[in-house]
Computed example of a mutant assay.
Amino acid sequence: MQNASKEKIWFLGRGFEEYLLMFKLNLPDLAHCHILDCNAGASSFTAEMNHKGYDVIAADILYGQSAEKMENISENDFLTLMNAHKDLKNEEDWGFFENHDHMIQYRIKSYNKFFEHYKTGKDAFYIESKLPKLPFRNNSFHLVLSSHLLFLYDDRLDYNFHLQSVKEMIRVSSQEVRIYPLVRLRSNRKSKFVDSLIRDLSPNYHTEIQKVDYRFREGADEMLRIQKTSGDQSRCGLISTDMIKIEGK
């Protein structure tokens, strides 16, 4: 189990309020944005945003499976992670959560919101996809968010995967990509790929590391913003879900 976990990508998720802080999102600014949550896992952001009237869909490699199967995977991963957290107390920076118990309660509520929405909105809001390829046309979304995959797993996803995945997210975005966190899974230090990625993207895109107000892991208080330097950088215009074309469907 220990050796297998070193290669595993956890199927976990974060809550709506966490997303607002992790990505420095201001809800009024998103009223006319079409948003993709890429590699969303069991996060409740898409569910809660749609319930509030916003235009968000999610993509993940495990979507397409039954809610029951994903619940089993998520529950096993969550329990394994909670056991691992016993050895990571020095890396926790309680800010968003009051303590360990508060984190567990919040996570469970977030997972429940995701699974309930997935059961009824699986085909409309949750698209099966596997980076570094996404099944969407160019400029399909105004904003693409990516949480807890890139940089975090730099011990098992190589630099080419990072670069091609980010280029793919840029391709399907008309304006901006935001990635959080920038630290590695097994330390509180920034991934070795961050500077290389910024260097390789900078000739064509505006890149910026920004501080965020979200606090949970020590050192994980920054996100990477990647903006297209051409095209309309004004407020988002409303795009309905019907305008998104999914290849092969």
Score class of each variant (00 low, 15 high):
112 N>P: 13
65 Q>N: 02
107 R>I: 06
86 K>G: 13
83 N>M: 14
86 K>N: 06
78 F>W: 07
73 I>W: 11
67 A>R: 04
114 F>V: 00
62 L>Q: 11
108 I>V: 06
108 I>K: 08
97 F>A: 03
100 H>V: 12
72 N>G: 09
84 A>M: 15
59 A>W: 00
92 E>Q: 07
109 K>F: 13
95 G>M: 04
88 L>N: 12
67 A>T: 01
93 D>Y: 02
111 Y>M: 03
98 E>S: 14
70 M>R: 09
104 I>P: 06
78 F>Y: 10
65 Q>I: 01
117 H>N: 06
68 E>F: 03
62 L>S: 12
56 V>E: 00
116 E>T: 10
62 L>P: 10
77 D>F: 12
116 E>K: 08
77 D>L: 05
107 R>Q: 08
86 K>I: 04
62 L>C: 02
90 N>S: 14
95 G>D: 15
82 M>K: 08
71 E>I: 11
77 D>M: 01
117 H>E: 10
77 D>C: 02
63 Y>V: 05
57 I>P: 01
93 D>V: 00
65 Q>V: 01
70 M>H: 11
98 E>H: 03
84 A>E: 13
95 G>Y: 06
110 S>I: 00
57 I>K: 08
102 H>L: 10
109 K>I: 07
118 Y>H: 04
104 I>T: 08
105 Q>R: 15
118 Y>E: 13
82 M>G: 07
91 E>H: 13
109 K>Q: 08
110 S>D: 01
89 K>A: 11
67 A>N: 03
73 I>Q: 09
80 T>S: 05
57 I>W: 02
116 E>N: 04
89 K>L: 14
63 Y>C: 03
79 L>F: 05
73 I>V: 14
92 E>Y: 05
93 D>S: 03
67 A>K: 15
75 E>V: 10
68 E>R: 08
63 Y>H: 12
101 D>G: 05
84 A>F: 12
72 N>I: 15
113 K>R: 12
97 F>C: 10
66 S>W: 10
59 A>V: 00
101 D>E: 15
102 H>E: 02
69 K>I: 09
102 H>S: 12
104 I>D: 06
99 N>G: 10
82 M>P: 11
64 G>A: 01
74 S>K: 15
110 S>K: 07
108 I>A: 13
93 D>Q: 08
115 F>P: 00
70 M>T: 08
57 I>C: 00
106 Y>N: 15
92 E>F: 15
